[in-house]
Computed example of a mutant assay.
Amino acid sequence: MRISAIETVAVSPAVRPELAVAGARGAHDRSDFLLVRVRTTGGVSGVGEVSATLLWSGEDAVTARHAIARALAPALLGQPLVPVAALERRMDRALAGSPFTKAGVATALWDAYARSLGVPLAVALGGPLRERVPVKCSLSGSGARLREVHAAALAAGFRAFKLKVGFDAGTDAVRLAHARELVGPDAFLGLDANGGYGRAEARRFLDLALEHRPAFLEQPVAPADLAGMRELRGLGVPIVADESVFGRDDLVSVIRAEAADVVSLYIGKSGGPGRLVEMAHLADAFGLEVVLGSNGELGLGAAAQIHAACASPGLSARIPSDIIGAHYYAHDVLEHPLALDGRMAGLDAFGAEPGLGVAPAAGVAAGFTPATSS
């Protein structure tokens, strides 16, 4: 079975304004994503999602479409579908960086592979190790805006949250106090600074934050400041590495520096679901917990997150993952939207369907066009 065609379609759904997230790195209120479909000579196809934003990796639907047409499609067309890992290596040789773009294509390849076997993607990835994954929702803003976002998250079913911080220690501490009041004294509430603090400011913020019992502090300092991350460990709050960890080499650096208690892995940052699960195995071998992070994935991306989370060892039992694709948009790209309740995301959302277990809506699927190198 060989790769016979690679097709793409751009989608730009607007984020529900009441849930739009604004953090220290900027706001995410629009998703200019690219969907990918891989066809094979055996009649099996697979789909994936390039959940990329210029803010995060310098990629979006425009850059992804160009890279797939000029580099990835020529490298993959005519190649055997199995093993998928060999196709991932071909993509690395054909295109530098661009992990989110490669992840969208890799997800489509893994989906096609799992469908060819007639098994769910979680099984093709070596699982499942669990059937369901707890999830949380990001809160941002202050005052009335924070109340609005929290109310919308509650209405969507969420009961676990993380607050975007990383601006100013004193102001963030006031916002944290407000958030704790909103969610209640016993609710799960973590913090995400998106690398916005310097070391001294991060320590000052932690001193102010501890009385509000945050469950974790994610990426308190700049991604490259692994020494600063290590200094903040052991101060009463688990430290989560997010922007510090894209690929395997980054994870190795974090492990060697003892810079985190938990790592946040993305389908996009890792370069696809297979590589995410590989990284989860490595993190688990060195005693690091894993959570699934989010770049605001749509339904296809959220489905991939669920399968990868259920196949990943070391998934944190104390910190919920960020699988929010079924809630973040008023209109999704799936034929049948994922039935998620805001508290758990599980394989039961897919029934007994093979692969990702989901398909693009007819109107979206009709927009796929062949990727070319012209």
Results as ranks from 00 to 15, higher is better:
96 A>E: 10
124 A>C: 12
39 R>G: 14
107 T>L: 05
103 A>I: 00
112 A>V: 08
108 A>G: 12
37 R>P: 11
56 W>G: 02
62 V>C: 13
19 L>K: 13
126 G>N: 07
77 L>N: 07
65 R>F: 03
29 D>E: 12
30 R>N: 09
114 A>E: 12
23 G>D: 08
32 D>C: 12
88 E>T: 02
101 T>A: 02
85 A>D: 14
31 S>N: 15
79 Q>K: 15
38 V>Y: 05
74 P>F: 01
23 G>L: 01
123 V>E: 15
64 A>D: 07
17 P>R: 15
17 P>M: 13
40 T>N: 13
110 W>E: 09
19 L>S: 08
41 T>H: 14
86 A>D: 14
47 V>T: 13
70 R>D: 10
40 T>E: 14
51 S>G: 10
66 H>V: 10
60 D>E: 13
53 T>P: 06
108 A>S: 14
63 T>W: 12
110 W>Y: 14
39 R>L: 14
80 P>G: 07
50 V>I: 08
60 D>F: 06
78 G>D: 14
124 A>Y: 06
47 V>E: 13
51 S>L: 03
62 V>T: 15
48 G>H: 03
121 L>N: 13
99 P>N: 03
67 A>D: 08
75 A>H: 02
40 T>G: 14
59 E>M: 05
45 S>I: 05
91 M>N: 04
71 A>R: 15
117 L>Y: 08
51 S>W: 02
113 Y>S: 11
58 G>F: 08
34 L>M: 08
52 A>M: 09
34 L>I: 03
40 T>D: 14
83 P>A: 02
45 S>R: 10
44 V>T: 15
22 A>F: 07
113 Y>R: 13
115 R>E: 11
76 L>H: 03
101 T>N: 04
84 V>C: 00
29 D>L: 10
99 P>T: 01
73 A>D: 02
50 V>L: 08
50 V>Y: 07
106 A>T: 04
114 A>F: 09
36 V>A: 04
41 T>L: 12
69 A>R: 11
111 D>F: 08
102 K>Q: 01
20 A>M: 10
33 F>E: 06
19 L>P: 05
24 A>C: 00
18 E>W: 10
95 L>G: 02
78 G>A: 08
54 L>F: 10
49 E>W: 03
106 A>C: 02
76 L>F: 05
96 A>K: 09
28 H>P: 00
59 E>C: 05
95 L>E: 04
54 L>H: 11
109 L>A: 03
116 S>E: 14
105 V>A: 03
125 L>M: 09
39 R>V: 07
46 G>D: 10
73 A>F: 00
129 L>T: 10
70 R>H: 14
68 I>C: 01
125 L>E: 05
97 G>M: 04
101 T>W: 00
100 F>I: 06
100 F>C: 15
91 M>V: 01
86 A>F: 04
108 A>R: 10
69 A>I: 01
127 G>K: 04
107 T>F: 01
77 L>W: 06
80 P>T: 04
101 T>S: 06
88 E>R: 06
70 R>V: 08
97 G>Y: 05
46 G>R: 08
89 R>N: 11
87 L>I: 00
95 L>P: 01
70 R>C: 08
27 A>M: 09
25 R>G: 00
62 V>W: 14
